[in-house]
Design a protein around this nucleic acid. Structure first.
Lengths: 211, 211
DNA sequence: CGCCGAGTTGAACTGAATCAAGAAACGTGG
DNA sequence: CCACGTTTCTTGATTCAGTTCAACTCGGCG
């Protein structure tokens, strides 16, 4: 049933125009991270392109210098890396979330992360050099970027506390609170690696909860 | 013998003048995070005060709204929080490091963290409202702050990977690589909680390594 | 000198990993 | 639209790293 809802959305997403992605993205950004001057908005809009992906497409390969930052309008994606040949999911993004190969985007080094779509997705894209240029040109944009980074930093801080002292079960419970519909949209295996536990352990936790 | 070296430094630290703390702090900041205009440096210097603490003094209490950011010139400090009555160390700072009650500083909420000196310390201090003001006034200072935040974010990201997939021993080894002299300056118990392991486990790891 | 907190050592316990099979779900081509 | 192969998820048995609890040692300080 949940499935049907999301199918409808996925069909609908093809109706979203590029302009709509760009403009609504900028609007959401401003709402969360700080207002921009009209001239800055105009410059920013120039720098944003729109990308569309199907289900489970690899968007960024490990080893590439990945200077794309995606802001999702529709669908979902994940960042992951390989640890002993296993995919470890590191970050999920849904509507109105950012995703990028964080190390590569901010340092221009080859990315240890892959990025892949989960569901079909539509996103606004900005390139790191353009972002740098906009930051240099517009003080208010630099301020907005600082807010985004601060926000991300605090989220990572929270996650460290969670990883260090919560049991596997607690971590799963908390994830469900933060993303109630994640189980309908993301493979269980990806969730397990995100939580730092094995598929088997997560499976057992889910079994216990269901009863 | 290491002890004596640091005793000399500790004595010496009383010789550091306030001006020296402020100016050398600003110099180090610029070297790492971006140049500032002369007028900005002047404004910044106005906003920095100097704080001195003895050994093991609590600097920020849990529950307080803590809008101080410290930049250490000498000595060391740690941020920690209580988990089931036990102190969990979350961040160490040595010379040229920052330390603040990260959540409180950036959100103005009551701090879940304590901050305490470890060794006697001397630090430059800036208050969050002053930092905000300087960011608003000077684009180059906002840029510098963004760089600091980005850097912190990437460090936290690294730490998540480390926490999630390294064994207790690996985590300790890596800590020693990053801070070779930490064992001479910080209580073993603080290191254990920083690594997310018990004192006993760390003790056994150290025993194994010594042999 | 004796206390006290920090660190060490030992023994028993436990949560989660690993290894190994089986069951479901998924999508691809006939 | 169904059959088959592949991937994902579940279930069970065993193992292991790290915790917990408890006793003991050591070095510094009143």
């Amino acid at each position: 049933m949940q499935k049907q809802d999301s199918d409808i959305n996925l069909t609908a997403c093809h109706d979203i125009s590029d302009d709509e992605v760009v403009l609504s993205g900028i609007e959401v950004l401003q709402r969360h991270y700080g207002r921009l001057s009209d001239v800055c908005v105009k410059d920013l809009a120039q720098c944003i392109s729109v990308a569309r992906f199907g289900k489970s497409e690899v968007i960024i390969e490990m080893g590439a210098v990945a200077d794309d930052l995606f802001f999702l309008r529709q669908g979902s994606a994940r960042a992951y890396y390989l640890k002993d040949g296993r995919e470890i999911t590191d970050w999920f993004a849904f509507e109105h979330d950012f995703i990028c190969a964080i190390n590569s985007f901010y340092t221009q080094n080859p990315s240890p992360h892959y990025i892949a779509s989960i569901e079909p997705m539509v996103a606004g894209v900005i390139h790191a050099p353009d972002m740098q240029m906009l930051c240099r040109k517009h003080h208010d944009f630099e301020h907005l970027c600082r807010n985004i980074t601060t926000d991300t930093m605090l989220r990572l801080q929270q996650r460290i506390v969670a990883l260090q002292f919560e049991s596997a079960q607690q971590k799963y419970e908390n994830l469900l609170v933060k993303y109630p519909e994640i189980t309908n949209r993301v493979a269980v295996g990806h969730i397990a690696s995100y939580l730092g536990i094995t598929n088997e352990t997560l499976s057992r936790i889910r079994h216990k909860r269901a009863s």
